[in-house]
């Protein structure tokens, strides 16, 4: 990542204007604008297929991998326009980490999983890596559980542990923002609780954007909530306001469980 001229500086806040996205002929996102503040947890809620995950994946350009996907609009992270031609996608993804719906630890040891990101960006010194691994596992509140089995395969961990390991893995490259795509939907309530606690802790240093199917989860952990429906951002505001006094009728019907 040596580019002395104009290394892009990614900030901690996200600003989107007039975002449209198509999968082939199907328009999955319609004219979305949003300001996601720094150091907060922002939740996206809405029924399946409403575009919330698709929108999330624009922030680290994972949608680039989908063939036939076309994006329009202005996406800014800090001051950097992430869909600009000069943007280094890899550097973007280093700064905007992601945790997936299903835990996806690599088939390697716990240590190598966490060290994967730093190694990708050129950290080779063992002492430095050791430090980063410990730091990240501590930040993900699993150092005590795992410090004696760093060299064991990550696939031997439980589902909840695997997901927290994936969070630690994302933290190891010191991202400014972490995207979470339904991170607890494959987990039991206790593991879910642990990850929610973790979010509380992480937002001190990192902006978190989380997609969730679970409205209780949104109320428990998020500061801001956006409600998506059929590719539109219907309503966006402080979580308390959205859940106590929604302005849009569709939001109200959704959060009171009348559809979705």
């Amino acid at each position: 990542m040596k580019n002395n001229k104009n290394e892009t500086v990614f900030g901690q806040n996200v600003s989107v204007k007039n975002a449209n996205l198509w999968y082939g002929d199907f328009q999955a996102l319609k004219n979305i604008g949003i300001e996601i503040p720094e150091g907060k947890v922002t939740a996206f809620i809405g029924p399946s297929g409403c575009g919330k995950s698709t929108f999330l994946k624009c922030f680290n350009r994972m949608n680039d991998l989908v063939s036939g996907c076309r994006v329009e609009g202005e996406f800014k992270i800090g001051e950097a326009d992430i869909y600009d031609r000069s943007t280094d996608v890899n550097a973007l993804r280093k700064n905007v980490g992601m945790v997936f719906q299903k835990p996806n630890p690599f088939p390697m040891s716990v240590y190598d999983n966490v060290a994967y990101g730093p190694r990708t960006f050129g950290v080779r010194k063992r002492s430095e890596l050791d430090e980063l691994v410990e730091e990240s596992l501590k930040a993900a509140a699993m150092w005590d559980e795992l410090k004696d089995r760093l060299d064991k395969s990550a696939l031997g961990l439980s589902g909840g542990q695997q997901q927290r390991l994936c969070i630690a893995r994302a933290l190891a490259v010191k991202p400014k923002i972490i995207l979470m795509d339904e991170p607890t939907s494959a987990l039991d309530p206790i593991s879910t609780g642990k990850i929610e606690e973790l979010c509380e802790e992480l937002k001190k240093t990192t902006t978190i954007v989380i997609v969730t199917h679970n409205m209780q989860q949104a109320t428990r952990i998020s500061d801001k909530t956006g409600f998506f429906l059929l590719g539109e951002l219907v309503e966006y505001g402080d979580t308390d306001d959205i859940f106590s006094s929604p302005k849009d009728e569709r939001t109200e019907r959704y959060i009171t469980g009348r559809f979705g």
Binding site: A91, M98, F106
Partner: peptide, 27 residues
């Protein structure tokens, strides 16, 4: 090899080549 592994690697900022050699081929 599950696509989720490829995505996991790319989402960490790894390039395609690194993803292939470090994650996909070993799996």
């Amino acid at each position: 090899v599950a696509d989720s592994l490829r995505e996991g690697s790319l989402a960490l900022g790894a390039g395609k080549l690194r993803t292939i050699f470090k994650v996909v081929l070993p799996s």
